[in-house]
Design a protein around this nucleic acid. Structure first.
Lengths: 113, 113
DNA sequence: CCGACTACTCTGTGTTGCCAACTACCAGTA
DNA sequence: TACTGGTAGTTGGCAACACAGAGTAGTCGG
């Protein structure tokens, strides 16, 4: 189950984070914590940080360093135009895939080609 | 888009193939061709064959060599008990993920936390 | 014989998430 | 002072997976 999710997150986690950032800007520690609460309990901090660096290098987000009351400065990421385009492509791909898999699930219970 | 799908298929392609085999036994060339027709047009043959070998080694399928009228013998895979369990876990993981992502998609258009 | 289709194999590559250890900053407490 | 714990980010190594592309085999029609 855990391993199953690990593989499934490949390719979707990026979209999830982009969508989170589309709602409002956020920083790594915050994103990890929120996703953990919302059910992705095994999600690893390092994974999110690495992903954020990746989407920054690809130019999907703008970054701003903001001092924190507690601890080192936060790197606050906000989605830019290019990021919104990427997010759009994520939703297109996701829609396609989830539609296909949804159909498979139905065929299953009906037993036909 | 193509690259987007490539990453998304990691972890889900196995489930898709398992579900295909749950309907009825099939061999690699056939599975690839069917999925290609059904929209996964960029799906690579080698990928499916490698996946089939993998799930065979994990004991999710039974294999039977069947002579073909045209070409070399077919390796016909059929889902066994262990495979059906694995398929169940796939559906559980998929349901979880697609529910979470579905909620994200809704929040998007509503604009709230 | 040769090209085309069927059917499977194999080696290498890039992307990705996980693991684990580390740095750094601050607050509270003994 | 020294220690603990929470906040915040970085880094290097690893395993799994899909893809690219080449190769092997078998059959058939021209």
């Amino acid at each position: 189950m855990a391993n199953q999710m690990t593989e499934m997150l490949k390719g979707t986690l990026e979209g999830i984070v982009l969508q989170v950032l589309a709602t409002r800007p956020a920083y790594g520690y915050e994103i990890t914590a929120r996703l953990r609460e919302q059910g992705f309990s095994d999600l690893v901090e390092g994974t999110v940080y690495a992903l954020l660096i990746r989407i920054e290098q690809r130019g999907f987000v703008d970054v701003q360093k903001v001092p924190s009351e507690k601890g080192p400065p936060r790197k606050v990421y906000s989605l830019n135009t290019k990021g919104r385009e990427q997010l759009g492509e994520f939703w297109r791909a996701w829609s396609f895939l989830s539609e296909k898999i949804g159909k498979l699930q139905i065929e299953q219970s009906e037993g036909e080609n």
